[in-house]
Design a protein around this nucleic acid. Structure first.
Lengths: 344, 344
DNA sequence: CAATAATATGAAAACGTTTTCATAATGTTA
DNA sequence: TAACATTATGAAAACGTTTTCATATTATTG
C-alpha cells in the first residue's frame, strides 16, 4: 500500500483552467456569490464535481479567518450526560455546516489548559467547554475570549464570567426537589453524598439540599454529608462510615448515579431494605439507574435540551460575529425533573 | 460582550521584528530545526511566550501539507465500546501531538459519506473509521486513499481492502466461545439474536455460533435465529416470537448487550427462570451487564487494546508517510474473552 | 593563514483560497 | 445614442506559515 503514485487533489485553479475562467470567479461561484452568472455557476459546479474538487479548508480558513470548526472540551465523553449533549451538539452544528473537534480533559486541569491552547492554535470559530471539577480559575480561556472567539460553558461553569455564555442545569432546584421528595415520602434522617465544593454543580445541589431540609424542618447530621469525588468506591466507603453509626439514615441523596448505584449495592450486601428502610435518590438519569433492581429514582437533566440550547446560542453568536444581540441573556438555566422509580 | 476591541494574535513576524531576525529563523527555532543557534532558539521561545504567540495551524498546514489532525468517524460515541476506543485513541494521539476530529455518522450511510468528504476537505493526516452497519460499499473512502491519506478501519470493516489498515475483534471466536459456553453449561436448544448480515461483525459471530453448534452436535432451529437491528424493542419482539412456540430454547446468545438486557427483562416479566430455564449470554461487556440482576455473562472486546493498536499502527504509518514497513501486517485481530456471570 | 567544511541566517517563493479594486460587458433610462 | 447603473469577470494582494536556495558567519583542517 501507499507505493502507488499519490493523486494530487484538484484545486480551484484546475477548474479555472478547464473552464477558461479566473480563480476568483470559481471561488465566487462555489460560494454562491450573487455577482456571478447563473450559467457560470452551474458550469463551475459541474466541473468541480467532475474533477472531484474539494475545497482546501486550510487555505480557505487562512484567508477568510473562518474555520467553520468549533472546539469542544469535555471531561469524559463516556459519561452518559456528556455523550448525549455532544451528540445533540454535533448533529445540530452539522446542519449549519460546522465541524466539531471533541477533546477530553480526562478531568485533568493541566490537560484542559493544554487543550484550550491547542484549540486556540487551530483557530476554532468558537469553543464549548464543560470544565474539570477542579477548574476554579478559568483564565486559560481568556486568550480565546480576547481574541473575539465566542466561548460557551456548560455543566461545570465559571461563576462570574460576563464575557462568555453559560448554560447550566438547575442544580439548586435539582438538589431541592430530590431532598423534598425524600422528605415527602417520609424520610426523617437524610444523608447526602456530594461532590467537591470547588464545582458550582455541588455547591448548588448542596444548597438545594440544605434549603429543602430547612423547609421540612429536618435536622442535619454533619457526619452524613460527604464532599468527595463521586466514584463508586468513594460512595461505598461513605456508606460504610454512615452505617457504622448507632443511628442510621432512612434517606440518601447522592449527587450522581454512580454513587447511588454503589449505595444500592452496599444496601443489598448489608441486607438493608430499599426503599423500606432506606430510600435512595441519584442524579442524572444514567441508563443504568433504570436497569438495576430496584430501579433508582433520579433527577433528569435533559442533555438534549442543553445541547440544543448551546447550538442555538452559538449560531446566534456567530451570525453576529461574537456579539450578543438585543435582550438575549448570557446565562441560561435548563430545568430538571424528578424521575420517580423504585428506590423511594 | 464582544464589544471590546478584538486582540490580534501575534504572528511569527511579530517575533521576528521584536528580535530583529527573519521569519524564517523564527519558524526554524519554533520547530526545533538543527540549523539554529542555541541562544537564538531560547530567545525565540522566550519572546514567543512573552507575546503569547500560538502557531496558526491553518497557515502551517497549508504550507507543509500536514495538519497533525486525524479524523474519526464512528456510528455513535455513546456506545460503550466506541466511547472507550475513542478515549484511548485520543489520549494516545495527544502524546504524539495529534488532534482528533470526532464525527458521528448516527449509523447513517449518507452521513458517513458526507463526513468522509468533509474530513477530506479538512485534509486530515489520516482517517479512522468504524462504519455503519449498512456500509457494504466502501468507495467513499477511496479518495482519501488515492490521496495518500492512511485509513484505518476498526470494528465494522471492509472485507477485501488491501490499501487500508484493518483492526477488528475476533468475532468468529467470540461467537464460538459464547455458544460453546452455553453448550458446555448444558444447553441443548440455543437461540441466536444477531445483527444484519451486511456487517462483518454478525457474519463472523454467526459463523462462530454455527461452528460451535455443529461441534457440540446441536440442531439449529431456524425460527430461533434473528438477523435484525440490535435494539431493545427488536430483541423483545424476537423473544415474544420465540416463546410463542410449543417448544422453547434453554439458551440464548445475543450479539450485543442491549439485546441480552431486553431478553432478561422479558424473561423476568414472563416468569422464565434465568439461568435455571434459560441461560443468556450477551456481547461487549457493557457496564450495564454487570449491574443488572442477575448479572449477564458476556464477551469482553478489550476496547483499550483496540484503541492502542490503532494508535500504534497509525503512528507507524505516518512516520513512514503512508507506507507499511517490513513485515507488519495490514490486518490485525484482537482477542476476545468470556466474562462469566450469573445468567449462565 | 588560506581553504574548506559546518553552522546559522535571510530573501523570496509557495501553499490554495478569498477579497479588494478595477474594468469589461450588459441593461436601462433620458 | 449618450449617460449611467447594474451585473459579471479578472488581476493581484493577502492570509501566516514552511521551505528552498543563496549567502554570511564561524569552526576546522592542512
Amino acid at each position: 500500500m501507499g507505493n502507488q503514485k499519490k493523486v494530487q487533489q484538484n484545486t480551484i485553479l484546475d477548474i479555472a483552467e478547464a473552464l477558461k475562467l479566473s480563480p476568483a470567479t470559481i471561488s465566487r461561484a462555489l460560494n454562491d456569490h450573487p455577482h456571478v452568472k447563473h450559467k457560470t455557476k452551474s458550469d463551475v459546479l459541474k466541473m468541480a464535481a467532475q474533477l472531484g474538487y474539494r475545497r482546501n479548508n486550510m487555505a480557505s480558513g487562512l484567508r477568510s479567518n473562518k474555520t467553520r470548526t468549533i472546539g469542544l472540551i469535555v471531561p469524559r465523553i463516556s459519561m452518559f450526560f456528556h455523550a448525549e449533549v455532544i451528540t445533540t451538539i454535533q448533529n445540530g452544528l452539522h446542519k449549519y455546516g460546522y465541524n466539531l473537534i471533541i477533546c477530553q480533559s480526562n478531568d485533568s486541569l493541566e490537560m484542559e489548559k493544554e487543550l484550550a491552547e491547542i484549540l486556540l492554535s487551530s483557530r476554532v470559530d468558537a469553543l464549548i467547554a464543560a470544565c474539570t471539577l477542579s477548574t476554579t480559575d478559568f483564565s486559560h480561556f481568556d486568550q480565546l475570549l480576547q481574541n473575539g472567539t465566542p466561548v460557551v460553558f456548560y455543566d461545570r461553569v465559571p461563576l462570574n464570567e460576563q464575557k462568555a455564555i453559560i448554560i447550566k442545569g438547575d442544580d439548586f432546584r435539582g438538589g431541592y426537589i430530590a431532598t423534598s421528595h425524600l422528605a415527602e415520602t417520609g424520610c426523617k434522617r437524610i444523608a447526602h453524598i456530594s461532590g467537591p465544593l470547588t464545582s458550582n454543580l455541588y455547591q448548588d445541589r448542596s444548597a438545594g439540599f440544605l434549603k429543602a431540609m430547612e423547609q421540612h424542618k429536618l435536622s442535619i447530621n454533619e457526619d452524613w454529608i460527604f464532599h468527595q469525588e463521586l466514584t463508586h468506591t468513594n460512595a461505598w466507603e461513605a456508606m460504610r462510615k454512615i452505617f457504622e453509626g448507632r443511628v442510621v439514615p432512612d434517606g440518601l441523596f447522592t449527587d450522581n448515579d454512580t454513587s447511588a448505584i454503589a449505595a444500592l449495592e452496599f444496601a443489598r450486601e448489608k441486607g438493608i431494605n430499599v426503599p423500606g428502610d432506606l430510600k435512595i435518590i441519584g442524579y442524572s438519569n444514567d441508563p443504568r439507574t433504570s436497569i438495576i433492581t430496584p430501579a433508582i429514582t433520579t433527577i433528569e437533566q435533559f442533555p438534549d435540551e442543553v445541547g440544543k440550547k448551546i447550538v442555538e446560542m452559538l449560531m446566534d453568536l456567530l451570525k453576529n460575529n461574537g456579539n450578543i444581540i438585543g435582550e438575549k441573556t448570557t446565562s441560561i438555566t435548563i430545568p430538571v425533573q424528578l424521575i420517580r422509580r423504585m428506590t423511594t
